[in-house]
């Protein structure tokens, strides 16, 4: 418990320092609980998520950093490796490939990379995965684009 708190405090200070270096990620710690974080990440360019802002919720276990943080999308997203209802993310580093060398910040970077490079062969969202597996890139992109517009962009007017 004490170890995880100390580590998170270091990450907090690092995040303040790195703010300018990584403008695509805005990582914020809950005011009253250092084990709860949220992040706003920019959808990567040249993907259907471009222009969208996606919110992630982090829940950090007491065993951190020996155990990974739990992360999920709060913003609806149409992506093969994100559960459409729960926002759960299928990413190896959040499961069995986790190591303390990762940080909350680098997890955000890995999630942005996953948005740009979906892995349709281990889908949490089968509809999305099947479009890609069937080679229907256009279908996938237009669905993903639609949900980006509906859920991840500020309402106009």
């Amino acid at each position: 418990m004490q170890a995880s708190r100390a580590r998170l405090f270091k990450e907090f200070k690092e995040v303040q320092r790195e703010k300018v270096a990584d403008p695509d990620i805005q990582l914020v710690c809950d005011d009253s609980n250092i084990f709860k974080w949220t992040a706003l990440i920019k959808g990567p360019s040249e993907t259907p998520f471009d222009g969208g802002i996606f919110q992630l919720a982090f829940s950090v276990p007491e065993q951190y950093p020996l155990q990974p943080p739990q992360v999920r999308f709060l913003t609806k997203i149409f992506h093969p490796n994100v559960h459409f209802k729960t926002g759960e993310i299928c990413l190896d580093i959040l499961k069995n490939a986790w190591s303390p060398a990762w940080t909350l910040q680098s997890v955000c970077r890995a999630i942005i990379a996953l948005m740009a490079h979906p892995e349709p062969d281990s889908p949490l969202n089968c509809d999305s995965g099947n479009l890609l597996r069937a080679g229907d890139i256009r279908g996938y992109q237009s669905m993903a684009r639609m949900y980006t517009r509906l859920a991840a962009m500020p309402k106009k007017g």
Binding site: E88, K95, C126
Partner: peptide, 27 residues
């Protein structure tokens, strides 16, 4: 149990209540 964890990433349409069965549960 490790093999189980990797498998969970794949959603099987036959399982109706899969939405309630999450990686957290597996972990």
């Amino acid at each position: 149990s490790k093999a189980e964890t990797t498998k969970t990433c794949t959603q099987t349409p036959e399982v109706d209540d899969w939405a309630n069965f999450r990686d957290d549960d597996i972990m």
